[in-house]
Nucleic acid binder design. Sequence first.
DNA 1: TTTATCTATGCATTAATTTCATGGTTTGGC
DNA 2: GCCAAACCATGAAATTAATGCATAGATAAA
Lengths: 300, 300
Amino acid sequence: MIERFHLQLLTAVDECGTLTLAADKLHLSQSALSHSIKKLEQQLGTAVWEKDGRKLRLTQAGRQILILAKRLLPQFEHTELLLTQIAKGQRGSLRIGMECHPCYQWLLKVVSPFLETWPGVEVDVKQEFQFGGMGALFDYDIDVLVTPDPLFKSGVTFIPVFDFEQRLVVSQSHPLATLQQIEPADLQNQTLITYPVEPQRLDIFSQFLAPAGCTVKRHRHIEATEIMLQMVSAGRGVAALPGWLVDTYARSLKLVSLRLGTKGIMKHIYLGMRNNDVNIDYIADFVRLAKQTENQVDEG
Amino acid sequence: MIERFHLQLLTAVDECGTLTLAADKLHLSQSALSHSIKKLEQQLGTAVWEKDGRKLRLTQAGRQILILAKRLLPQFEHTELLLTQIAKGQRGSLRIGMECHPCYQWLLKVVSPFLETWPGVEVDVKQEFQFGGMGALFDYDIDVLVTPDPLFKSGVTFIPVFDFEQRLVVSQSHPLATLQQIEPADLQNQTLITYPVEPQRLDIFSQFLAPAGCTVKRHRHIEATEIMLQMVSAGRGVAALPGWLVDTYARSLKLVSLRLGTKGIMKHIYLGMRNNDVNIDYIADFVRLAKQTENQVDEG
DNA sequence: TTTATCTATGCATTAATTTCATGGTTTGGC
DNA sequence: GCCAAACCATGAAATTAATGCATAGATAAA
């Protein structure tokens, strides 16, 4: 069996020229190296080098091992370097799961500074989960779940990082645009545009229309946030989206956002993660950066 | 220090699912594996896997090691396979040195069947040596020397493999073409074409012209055998080459070969090799094949 | 020929690995 | 909800391997 040590030994002899000098370099006795090689040679059934005077000359077999050494040793060392970085928390992978369609815009504000602070951490964002965001978290498909609907189960921690109000968006010229607030009945003759997810996961249904026993004239699905806002701007329908998100497009697209009900629909974005991971440096820092965005958005 | 064993261990656990089954596969106790990993984890400063119920789940660090394992282990195994072939003499390299210009044609007849018999042996032919063929042999630049001039020194073995007569080649229409044999004086008014080497290494000088105190009208150098024969065919000069070599071109180029002196210049091709290498299977077989060509050439 | 240098090897010592025995945890069946 | 089975962790003992010392053998240089 060729061991890593043998590769180091061959390399050292190649660099130093003699077994004695190689022994110094490896902080071992010349005897130890001699014994090691003898044993290897017995196992392989072939000599690694032959004596030429008092020098050693690699045999065909020895040359092959040296070639192997020069190829493999750097890879061992590279992985070990990687592991010390992982041990220090400087390196790893952060797989973010998104269970909140409009939050994508917000996420970018968090990821951007994160990437600068943690160049060794690979960030990946996933949006589709076979067994829901929680399943993905438990199955180690993701490391952090961005969701407005936390499930406080044992084994996972959910931390609120951002508060916002879910508001109705309409175009400036829309009949509802002048109202102070929207009541469920106001939407009876409207086209409501939402992301293509089950209605029970949409707050405007579960917290606003359904409790009042109301419905809308038409319900359309659109995947992309910007297209959705373009449609609203063109008067083709209304949508329910986070207030801060509407604000960033309000001027350019001539949009107005309105409170839903008297108190409004107040939401929180939570970051969910496995308890074991909470103390990993770069994950803790991701949470910290996520909390910071609240101020930025309010100011902006 | 990540050792080869750790790579095998990680791979086995990855394949078997549990540490216990991996232990069976590696013919070790479950305890031994557990201890090994614990020690590695201490050295690395990071866990390799974490317990998830009674299963083991790789950590980020563990995944890196597994990636390393899947890349490096096959390379270890490949080299070990190579070494067993080298040990059995099925594989190696045969670097042939040529110190005999016209012998190249002959060599091809030997190399061709050799390559078929020894697919694992890499054959290389060298023709230029800084310190002569013997030096190249001693310096391990070549493994076999093809030469008509053996030097019987200790450490090397020279084996005669092929006998031939060095004859003068002239065109059919040349004035000398009708002679039974050539005497040194016959060449006084001739242009002699030879390979570009020192005259003392040319038999026609050292064994024929020089002893008789004769010389030629002109001496030209040409590197390539076929061009040399074309020149002779065109009546531009005469040359001294092995009889069997001339025979193969005699009809197509309208050439005649003549004996030099009464007894002719008789030569032998020798194969020289280091004593240590004489018993290597594929080298011994190369010698055997070289000896066989004698019959083939005589017949052809 | 002598001396310095280098590798090989037997033997005693030291270190590392492995196993055994056992305890703790989790899972699944009853 | 309890019990048995499966699995991993761990301490201590036993085994095995690696290492260094001392020295012999061999080569090259002086």
